[in-house]
């Protein structure tokens, strides 16, 4: 591919949106969180929603997302973001209300809040970073941790007899009548980044057209620190191991009868 083929506006991946401030990010090199932050900031800016967005941060590595994107935020207790989002959206129906949650936050401690907010069809967007591990607390097992994978709390590998099976929570959520758009994406290549951005935009648009329904964008992600891999190796490992368990694509799109 020639250079001029690459340098085209539609291929522009790394321009910093204006609402991404200059605070130094605390994320590890290669972490997916930073990429997804940028996509959220871009979409908010492109949709002209800077003044009309309220984001909810989780407890997890992304707890400090509020330090990097210049919109109003609420920081939730671990797992409770969808409950906050429910109230904010109902009290301020014209706002874009979205949560940003890790797999521990969303699919362990916050399972009830997640399922019920989705089941009520709250007009919110849930951005779900599934890195298969508890990044923030130092790499313990998450509900999404794959079978056989070693973590700080399953040092001999996840044993399904002891710990149950990797939880495909998004597959559960798509079955709920309250969900409108449920998709699974990733950000390991430029093409994947663009797809994820489109998915986030669609989720955000759905939140504001008055039709209702919850929108879930899962991003299968890497945690190079927790996985104890280089960022490049983590991406490769994710493709080979995470994607078979968490295949990418739209799981539900009621507007397209999916």
């Amino acid at each position: 591919m020639a250079l001029e083929d690459i340098i085209k506006p539609e291929n522009l991946v790394y321009k910093k949106p204006d609402i991404m401030n200059d605070n130094a990010m605390h994320y590890c090199p290669g972490c997916s969180h930073g990429v997804v932050h940028k996509l959220i900031a871009e979409v908010i800016e492109e949709m002209g929603l800077v003044e009309d967005s309220i984001g909810i941060t989780p407890v997890g590595c992304a707890v400090f997302a509020y330090n990097y994107i210049d919109i109003d935020w609420e920081e939730a207790a671990h797992g409770r973001a969808p409950a906050l989002a429910t109230a904010i959206k109902r009290l301020r129906p014209n706002k874009l209300v979205f949560t940003y949650q890790g797999d521990g936050d969303l699919s362990a401690i916050g399972t009830a809040e997640t399922i019920h907010a989705c089941n009520r069809g709250e007009s919110i967007a849930i951005i779900f970073i599934n890195n298969g591990i508890y990044g923030m607390t130092g790499g313990q097992m998450a509900p999404t941790t794959l079978e056989g994978i070693k973590t700080a709390t399953c040092p001999y590998g996840r044993d399904v007899k002891l710990n149950g099976y990797p939880l495909k929570i998004t597959n559960l959520l798509k079955e709920l009548e309250g969900t409108r758009f449920v998709t699974r994406q990733s950000v390991h290549t430029a093409a994947a980044v663009r797809k994820t951005k489109k998915a986030i935009r669609k989720a955000f648009e759905n939140c504001l057209d008055g039709k209702g329904g919850a929108n879930v964008v899962e991003v299968v992600s890497t945690c190079s620190s927790g996985w104890k891999m280089t960022p490049a190796k983590a991406n490769k490992w994710m493709e080979e191991n995470m994607f078979p368990a968490y295949p990418l694509g739209d799981l539900r799109d009621r507007d397209a009868n999916i």
Binding site: E74, A76, A83, L84, T86, A87, I88, A112
Partner: peptide, 26 residues
């Protein structure tokens, strides 16, 4: 006024947190 039956008291108080945080009397 918004009235909502939450799925648990945990959720209800966190809805209160969300609502209070966006300036509402909840």
């Amino acid at each position: 006024m918004v009235v909502l039956q939450a799925e648990s008291e945990v959720s209800a108080i966190n809805m209160v947190y969300g609502g209070a945080g966006c300036g509402k009397k909840v």
